[in-house]
Simulated scan of single mutants.
Amino acid sequence: MWNELYPEDGNDPHDDDHAAEMHRLRGLIMAQAAETEAVLGMILVRLDPGQNVARPAGQLLLSIRQRLDEQRRSHWSAGLDLIYDAIKRRNEAVHRPVEVGSSWAPYSTGDGGEWVPVITLMCDQEYDEQNLRKDLALQHRATCEAVRLLRSLDL
Protein backbone atom coordinates (compact mmCIF):
# COMPACT_ATOMS: atom_id res chain seq x y z
CA MET A 1 0.00 0.00 0.00
CA TRP A 2 2.87 2.35 0.87
CA ASN A 3 4.33 2.05 -2.62
CA GLU A 4 0.97 2.77 -4.23
CA LEU A 5 0.34 5.88 -2.13
CA TYR A 6 3.89 7.22 -2.24
CA PRO A 7 5.67 5.83 -5.34
CA GLU A 8 8.22 8.65 -5.19
CA ASP A 9 9.45 7.39 -1.82
CA GLY A 10 12.24 4.98 -2.69
CA ASN A 11 12.78 3.73 0.86
CA ASP A 12 9.75 1.57 1.65
CA PRO A 13 9.87 0.76 5.39
CA HIS A 14 7.21 -1.89 4.98
CA ASP A 15 7.73 -5.28 3.43
CA ASP A 16 4.08 -6.19 3.00
CA ASP A 17 4.82 -8.95 0.49
CA HIS A 18 6.42 -11.01 3.23
CA ALA A 19 3.68 -10.20 5.72
CA ALA A 20 0.74 -10.99 3.41
CA GLU A 21 0.21 -14.43 4.94
CA MET A 22 0.23 -12.92 8.41
CA HIS A 23 -2.44 -10.40 7.44
CA ARG A 24 -4.48 -13.21 5.87
CA LEU A 25 -4.27 -15.17 9.13
CA ARG A 26 -5.39 -12.10 11.12
CA GLY A 27 -8.43 -11.92 8.87
CA LEU A 28 -9.18 -15.59 9.43
CA ILE A 29 -8.93 -15.11 13.19
CA MET A 30 -11.46 -12.31 12.99
CA ALA A 31 -13.81 -14.32 10.78
CA GLN A 32 -13.65 -17.38 13.03
CA ALA A 33 -14.27 -15.20 16.09
CA ALA A 34 -17.37 -13.81 14.36
CA GLU A 35 -18.66 -17.38 14.00
CA THR A 36 -18.20 -17.94 17.73
CA GLU A 37 -19.99 -14.67 18.47
CA ALA A 38 -22.94 -15.77 16.31
CA VAL A 39 -23.19 -19.07 18.20
CA LEU A 40 -22.99 -17.23 21.53
CA GLY A 41 -25.97 -15.17 20.38
CA MET A 42 -27.89 -18.37 19.61
CA ILE A 43 -27.05 -19.76 23.05
CA LEU A 44 -28.24 -16.60 24.79
CA VAL A 45 -31.52 -16.60 22.83
CA ARG A 46 -32.03 -20.23 23.81
CA LEU A 47 -31.44 -19.40 27.47
CA ASP A 48 -33.41 -16.15 27.48
CA PRO A 49 -35.49 -15.57 24.31
CA GLY A 50 -36.04 -11.86 24.98
CA GLN A 51 -32.35 -10.96 25.06
CA ASN A 52 -30.71 -8.53 22.64
CA VAL A 53 -27.83 -10.39 20.98
CA ALA A 54 -26.47 -7.38 19.09
CA ARG A 55 -23.64 -7.06 21.61
CA PRO A 56 -19.93 -7.87 21.66
CA ALA A 57 -18.91 -11.46 22.29
CA GLY A 58 -17.57 -10.72 25.78
CA GLN A 59 -20.91 -9.31 26.88
CA LEU A 60 -22.75 -12.26 25.34
CA LEU A 61 -20.49 -14.69 27.19
CA LEU A 62 -21.06 -12.89 30.49
CA SER A 63 -24.83 -13.01 29.99
CA ILE A 64 -24.63 -16.72 29.17
CA ARG A 65 -22.63 -17.45 32.32
CA GLN A 66 -25.22 -15.57 34.39
CA ARG A 67 -28.11 -17.54 32.91
CA LEU A 68 -26.65 -21.05 33.11
CA ASP A 69 -27.76 -23.04 36.12
CA GLU A 70 -25.01 -24.04 38.57
CA GLN A 71 -24.71 -27.58 37.20
CA ARG A 72 -24.27 -26.46 33.58
CA ARG A 73 -21.97 -23.60 34.58
CA SER A 74 -19.75 -26.08 36.43
CA HIS A 75 -19.85 -28.64 33.61
CA TRP A 76 -19.02 -26.04 30.94
CA SER A 77 -16.49 -24.08 33.00
CA ALA A 78 -13.44 -25.13 30.96
CA GLY A 79 -15.23 -24.54 27.66
CA LEU A 80 -16.46 -21.12 28.75
CA ASP A 81 -12.93 -20.21 29.88
CA LEU A 82 -11.57 -21.30 26.49
CA ILE A 83 -14.14 -19.11 24.73
CA TYR A 84 -13.15 -16.21 27.00
CA ASP A 85 -9.47 -16.70 26.13
CA ALA A 86 -10.33 -16.75 22.41
CA ILE A 87 -12.31 -13.51 22.77
CA LYS A 88 -9.33 -11.84 24.47
CA ARG A 89 -6.93 -13.00 21.72
CA ARG A 90 -9.35 -11.83 19.02
CA ASN A 91 -9.60 -8.43 20.68
CA GLU A 92 -5.82 -8.16 20.65
CA ALA A 93 -5.67 -9.04 16.94
CA VAL A 94 -8.38 -6.52 16.06
CA HIS A 95 -7.64 -3.57 18.32
CA ARG A 96 -3.86 -3.47 18.66
CA PRO A 97 -1.95 -1.35 16.17
CA VAL A 98 -0.03 -3.42 13.63
CA GLU A 99 3.54 -2.80 12.66
CA VAL A 100 5.19 -5.17 10.22
CA GLY A 101 8.87 -5.87 10.61
CA SER A 102 11.37 -8.71 10.64
CA SER A 103 13.24 -10.56 13.32
CA TRP A 104 16.42 -12.61 12.94
CA ALA A 105 15.72 -16.30 13.57
CA PRO A 106 18.78 -18.54 13.84
CA TYR A 107 18.59 -21.98 12.25
CA SER A 108 18.27 -24.86 14.70
CA THR A 109 21.56 -26.27 13.36
CA GLY A 110 23.31 -23.12 14.57
CA ASP A 111 24.53 -22.42 11.04
CA GLY A 112 23.26 -18.94 10.18
CA GLY A 113 19.63 -17.95 10.11
CA GLU A 114 17.05 -15.90 8.26
CA TRP A 115 14.89 -12.80 8.62
CA VAL A 116 11.34 -13.80 9.53
CA PRO A 117 8.38 -11.39 9.13
CA VAL A 118 6.73 -10.51 12.43
CA ILE A 119 3.85 -8.32 13.46
CA THR A 120 4.42 -6.21 16.56
CA LEU A 121 0.90 -6.49 17.80
CA MET A 122 0.28 -8.40 20.97
CA CYS A 123 1.31 -6.23 23.90
CA ASP A 124 4.25 -4.89 21.91
CA GLN A 125 5.89 -8.30 21.70
CA GLU A 126 7.09 -9.96 18.52
CA TYR A 127 4.30 -12.03 17.12
CA ASP A 128 4.97 -14.26 14.15
CA GLU A 129 3.06 -16.49 11.77
CA GLN A 130 3.27 -19.47 14.12
CA ASN A 131 1.60 -17.40 16.89
CA LEU A 132 -1.17 -16.41 14.47
CA ARG A 133 -1.74 -20.05 13.53
CA LYS A 134 -2.04 -20.94 17.23
CA ASP A 135 -4.56 -18.13 17.72
CA LEU A 136 -6.56 -19.33 14.72
CA ALA A 137 -6.64 -22.84 16.21
CA LEU A 138 -7.83 -21.34 19.51
CA GLN A 139 -10.64 -19.52 17.69
CA HIS A 140 -11.66 -22.78 16.02
CA ARG A 141 -11.72 -24.64 19.35
CA ALA A 142 -13.80 -21.83 20.87
CA THR A 143 -16.37 -22.11 18.09
CA CYS A 144 -16.52 -25.89 18.61
CA GLU A 145 -17.09 -25.42 22.36
CA ALA A 146 -19.83 -22.87 21.72
CA VAL A 147 -21.56 -25.26 19.29
CA ARG A 148 -21.29 -28.11 21.81
CA LEU A 149 -22.84 -25.91 24.51
CA LEU A 150 -25.64 -24.87 22.16
CA ARG A 151 -26.33 -28.51 21.30
CA SER A 152 -26.33 -29.49 24.99
CA LEU A 153 -29.20 -27.09 25.63
CA ASP A 154 -31.40 -29.30 23.44
CA LEU A 155 -30.63 -32.45 25.41
Rank of each mutant, 00 (worst) to 15 (best):
W76M: 06
H75R: 14
G10E: 13
G112C: 13
R90E: 10
L62A: 15
P13C: 02
M1W: 07
T109W: 09
Q66I: 08
A86R: 07
E145H: 12
A146I: 05
I43K: 00
N131W: 09
I83A: 06
D124T: 10
A93F: 04
V45I: 12
R55W: 09
W76Q: 07
W2N: 08
Y6P: 05
D111Q: 15
A19D: 03
A31C: 05
Q139R: 11
D9Q: 15
R73Y: 07
L80G: 12
W104T: 02
L47I: 06
L82I: 10
E37G: 06
Y6S: 11
A38P: 05
D128T: 11
L149H: 05
D17M: 03
D124F: 14
V147G: 04
N131F: 09
R90Y: 01
L121H: 05
R55Y: 08
D69T: 00
I29L: 04
V116W: 04
R55C: 00
A20W: 02
I43H: 01
N91P: 09
V147L: 01
T36F: 01
R141A: 15
Q125M: 14
L150Y: 00
N52L: 03
E145C: 09
P49R: 08
D135S: 04
E126W: 08
V45E: 14
V116C: 11
A20Y: 00
A93Q: 02
R65F: 09
R26I: 06
M1C: 13
Y107C: 07
R55P: 03
L153K: 04
Q51G: 02
T36E: 03
L28D: 01
L153T: 03
Q130S: 14
A33R: 01
R24D: 05
L5K: 09
R96K: 11
A78Y: 04
L25S: 06
G79C: 04
S152R: 04
I83M: 04
A86L: 06
M22G: 12
E92K: 14
H140W: 12
C123N: 14
R141Q: 15
R133P: 06
I29H: 01
W2Q: 07
S74W: 02
P97W: 10
S102N: 12
R26G: 02
W115K: 08
N11C: 11
Y6M: 13
L28P: 01
Q125T: 15
